[in-house]
Structures are given as C-alpha cells and as structure tokens.
C-alpha cells in the first residue's frame, strides 16, 4: 500500500534542545565532522488504495494542523512513496 511521508523539523530560528544535546555527545565521542544537529520527526501515513490529489491535499492539511505545531515547527516534506513489498512498479 502506498504511504505518504511527512517530515517535520523545528523552525530554524527555534531552539532545538534535542539536537543540541546530540551535537554535544557527538563531539565528546570524537565524531567531530558535524557542526550542528537538528532532530525532527517523520510520519508515515498509509493509504488504502490510490493516492489521489484529494488524499494528498488531506495529508498536507494534516501536516500543518495536527502533525506539526506551526508556532515552532515547519513541514519540510509531504511526499508519496510506493511500498515495494506489494510489488507496485512505477
């Protein structure tokens, strides 16, 4: 069954305590190749049947109303992926 992927990230200007703590840990572990970390969320919305424009629009709406808090987060991706396990080809 196809799924719609929604990625949500903290707004760039908003403090991300999670990312900050992870960045500090990476430095202490000697993994110094990264200058910053930001931690976001990924949602997978499974769709029964075809992903119509209407369904996609619903996902976009859900992304900005429920899945993200527009005060502190941005929706950075709303995208359809076909699930390989049921053999759907492009």
């Amino acid at each position: 069954m196809p799924r719609i992927i929604v990625d949500v990230m903290p707004k760039p200007e908003i403090l991300d305590p999670q990312g900050k703590a992870i960045a500090g840990a990476l430095q202490r572990l000697g993994q110094t190749g990264f200058s910053a970390v930001r931690q976001g969320k990924r949602f997978e919305l499974t769709v029964d049947g075809e992903v119509t424009e209407e369904v996609l629009e619903q996902a976009r709406h859900a992304a900005v109303t429920l899945l993200s808090n527009p005060v502190i987060e941005d929706v950075t991706r709303v995208e359809v992926v076909k699930d390989a396990t049921i053999g759907v080809s492009e």
Binding site: P10, K11, I14, L15, D16, P17, K20, A21, V71, I72
Partner: peptide
C-alpha cells in the same frame, strides 16, 4: 517567535 525551553540546560 515563541520561547522554547530546555529543562536539561
């Protein structure tokens, strides 16, 4: 912009 808290900090 809203203030975000970091209780660990």
């Amino acid at each position: 912009a809203v203030q975000v808290g970091d209780p660990f900090a």
